[in-house]
């Protein structure tokens, strides 16, 4: 594995750990979009269908796939549980989490049927997963822009998550040069995903990085 791939995977892992740590330690779900989290469950369940073929690529690969599936479900369970434990916060979340996900689902489903490697269930599911992932953060970004203020941990979560797919782009270029392989669907969706994050990255740079630089003695 090349450094971009490792760093990408680590930042993906870090993003989820930051999110779970955030919910667990502060005991609040403020600022988190349940819609985005449900979309990620769908992304991982449709992406990792190859797990059922039991032709395992590597130990690392299998563990990571199982982690992404289980942790995404766990986050949704945590958010659902807050319905009773943090009734007010849960209601506030639903009121601000108003992005129309049906358009995302319909658009990515059409994209999967039109753009795929083979017209089979597994291939269409994989393609759907890749296109869906590229836009799954939109409800979360929409919520963030509506509320204006945000908890810094939520912001770090979004940053780490955006960084992961951005790092996959140099990884794909690296693999194209060293192994001669490239997946055009993943590359195109990866570029879209990075563009979706670009505005957020800019704000993150302006607010988080510049501010911390100013705080230096």
């Amino acid at each position: 594995m090349n450094p971009f791939r490792i760093l990408g995977d680590l930042s993906h892992l870090a993003s989820i750990l930051v999110l779970i740590f955030n919910i667990k330690s502060t005991n609040t779900i403020e600022g988190i979009s349940i819609k985005t989290q449900v979309l990620y469950v769908l992304v991982f369940l449709t992406r990792y269908l190859d797990l059922f073929s039991f032709r395992l690529v590597s130990f690392y690969n299998t563990i990571m796939k199982l982690f992404f599936i289980s942790s995404s479900i766990y986050v949704v369970v945590l958010l659902q549980r807050s319905k009773t434990t943090q009734a007010v916060a849960y209601k506030t979340m639903l009121l601000t989490d108003t992005f129309k996900v049906q358009y995302i689902l319909l658009g990515t489903l059409i994209a999967a049927f039109v753009i795929n490697h083979k017209f089979t269930f597994v291939e269409i599911a994989w393609s759907f997963s890749v296109w869906l992932e590229s836009v799954a953060i939109l409800p979360q970004l929409f919520m963030l822009s509506k509320s204006g203020k945000s908890k810094s941990l939520t912001v770090h979560y979004i940053f780490a998550l955006g960084l992961y797919r951005t790092l996959y782009i140099p990884n794909w270029i690296w693999r194209y040069h060293t192994e001669g392989v490239i997946d055009k669907i993943a590359l195109a969706a990866g570029i879209i995903q990075t563009l979706v994050y670009s505005d957020f990255f800019y704000l993150y740079y302006k607010k988080v990085i510049k501010r911390s630089a100013l705080n230096l003695p």
Binding site: R5, V57, N61, K65, H117, V181, I182, D183
Partner: peptide, 10 residues
């Protein structure tokens, strides 16, 4: 080959 790439990445 594209198939390999897809299952070996996350």
């Amino acid at each position: 080959l594209a198939h390999n790439l897809k299952h070996d990445e996350l």
